[in-house]
């Protein structure tokens, strides 16, 4: 079906009635043809599902039977659904608990890796490894390490005569465990991005600072951090996108139920739960669009912050953030 919509524009453009405008299209058609695969694929696998999900969100549909138009009912239910708001709250708490330490550690790691040390290549690979490790395998490892009665962490705590913490069954325990998983997985990845940013800073500045007698901390806070600002913003924005779309970690750690008290239920996990285990596709789509609105709000805040504080470099980062944020969320449907 999609092929009809795809092929349609070409013959109309080729028609003799419209003469003036299409000349550029005609002249550059090999170029248009060359870039078309992405747009065609995006149309079929991106745009159509996005528009369709908006359409479904105004319907009641079990995925197979007939659709029933329900107007804004899915959205009014959503606004009064405590499970949804719990998921929103969880998502933001986990996002905050993971992003702040992650950015800090990543920056620190990058700074250390940037020093003249031995085995640089080895460290870079080592720190990047968590990012490419299978999440399912990692969930088993984390499940064992943070196990309430048999975990390494609790064994260590009791050995130190501290109380064991119910990592996988208390509200804050679950959120902490998920945050640690996110930190573990993305710190190295972001450190590599920071490192690229660091390498772009001219060594002259460091030399000048050294000549002026600046210490390590002063060099870091007065030269590295300010010059890395666009990169830091980029990392924060991508982490926000990842954080709002958090799904794999809680799903593999706690299954679709979200754990006791639904303390690990994130927005996307709830969306998945409603669409693919309850087969309520209308509501699943509504949740997706609610997430889009939330992500859009964040994108605007990001953009504002960047535009006001960073006149030049940051602006670019902010825009890409805006676009990426939207795409990511639509991709979730």
């Amino acid at each position: 079906m999609a092929a009809t919509t795809l092929a349609a524009p070409a013959p109309t453009q080729a028609g003799p009635s419209i003469r003036k405008k299409p000349t550029s299209i005609r002249r550059f058609w090999p170029q248009y043809l060359a870039i078309s695969p992405f747009y065609l694929l995006f149309l079929v696998f991106g745009l159509v599902p996005i528009v369709f999900s908006l359409y479904i969100s105004f319907h009641d549909w079990d995925g197979v039977g007939p659709m029933k138009y329900v107007g804004l009912q899915q959205y009014t239910y959503l606004l009064n659904d405590p499970r949804f708001w719990n998921a929103v709250e969880n998502t933001f708490i986990i996002w905050f608990m993971s992003t702040v330490p992650m950015v800090f550690f990543a920056l620190l790691l990058a700074f250390l890796l940037h020093q003249s040390i031995r085995f640089k290549g080895f460290y870079r690979v080592a720190y990047f490894l968590p990012n490419v490790t299978s999440m399912v395998a990692m969930a088993i490892v984390f499940g064992s390490v943070f196990s309430d009665s048999f975990g390494l962490v609790n064994s260590a705590l009791t050995a130190l005569h501290l109380d064991a913490i119910p990592w996988l069954s208390s509200d804050w325990g679950i959120k902490t465990t998920i945050s640690v998983m996110v930190i573990w997985r993305f710190t190295g990845y972001n450190a590599i991005i920071f490192l690229a940013g660091l390498q772009a800073i001219s060594p002259d500045l460091y030399d000048a600072a050294r000549v002026d007698g600046a210490g390590l901390w002063r060099t870091f806070s007065r030269i590295t951090v300010p010059l890395l600002r666009p990169v830091i913003l980029f990392v924060v924005i991508t982490s926000t996108i990842g954080g709002l779309g958090l799904f794999t970690e809680p799903q593999v750690l706690l299954t679709e139920s979200g754990g006791p008290n639904e303390a690990g239920m994130t927005i996307v996990l709830y969306q998945y739960n409603q669409a693919f285990t309850q087969f309520d596709f209308g509501y699943g789509s509504a949740i997706g669009w609610a997430l889009f609105v939330i992500a859009g709000l964040f994108a605007v805040i990001n953009w504002r912050l960047v535009r006001e504080r960073n006149s030049l470099a940051g602006n670019v980062g902010g825009r890409t953030g805006l676009l990426r944020g939207r795409r990511k969320n639509r991709g979730n449907h």
Binding site: G143, S147, S149, F150, L253, P260
Partner: peptide, 8 residues
């Protein structure tokens, strides 16, 4: 036993 995850 209050064990909920498979590993537990």
């Amino acid at each position: 036993s209050k064990a909920y995850t498979d590993t537990e």
